[in-house]
Amino acid sequence: MKAITLIHSHFQWMCTILGVVFSVAIHTTGWAQNKPTDQETESHQKGRPEYIVISAGYNAASFRDFATSPLFYSGSAVYTSLAHTDIDLVRESSFTASYSTGNFVADFNETDLKSKVHTFSLNFLELFQLQSLSSSSFNIKLGGQFNSTMNIRNNEKLLNNSEGVDLISTLFASAKGTLDISRKKTTEKKFLFIRYTAKKRVRKLSYTLNVGCINSSYRNGFAYTSSSAPINDDAFFSDYEFRIFRGFRINSALNYTLFMENKNAIQFSYLWDAYRTGGHHDNFEMAAHTIKCSLLFGLK
């Protein structure tokens, strides 16, 4: 079985490289793995751990909206999210709602235009174990994800184009690799001259890559300025246009999860998200790097 590769007009080479990496991994692991037994699979499914995940973090991002400016706006934002996750070796389902807000500046040639951005995002992820590639210590899951992200931007110095709302919705193909890096037994260790006891810990390191398959955007039309103002109409979205199968989005998540004995966990994550809506007059590009800390409260 070959890894799933996605060929896209502007990013074919990148996807091809990722496809090669996956292909090599699959080829070298095709006939030698430690499969979970049927009994282990069944017991996992019955008692799939469930978590409420509360996250807070910090986000560094940049964006460019060609409809109003050729300049990149960069800045930082506060990030927070709430999620519900069911996860075990065989399957993972997750629903996440996140919000970030911050100020972004185009700092070029002594101009200091500032854009205030609020970003709301809803995300649904469903992954299934790829048994042929997985083992007790290294688990690979494949599946899909749907994400809808709304940016609300305000830049007063752009006059009648000060307000902008972008709704980016994407269906992704997803792949996740989880490495069990648990410390199986308590050991004595030394750091420089300091001796300490390293207790046994359940720890996992995972990486999720999501590649956009169906991308859509709902944004201002050609003129960007609303045509409702001259006629005293409140229809803010009257000139907004929905476009599908245009643009591209890719994101990834690197998670380090430390499980407690009380079924809770703490997780440190690095998220990367980049997308562009496509088109000539109104292409919107944004990339965000997020570092967050999450508390996973085990429900069962």
Binding site: T68, S69, E110, T111, L159, N160, N161, T225
Partner: peptide
């Protein structure tokens, strides 16, 4: 005509009419 608003590559701003009444 209702004016828009935009920015140039050097950061300056501009506006001009983009509607007809």
């Amino acid at each position: 005509g209702i004016p828009n608003g935009g920015q140039l590559p050097n950061g300056w701003r501009y506006r001009f009419s983009i509607t007809q009444t």
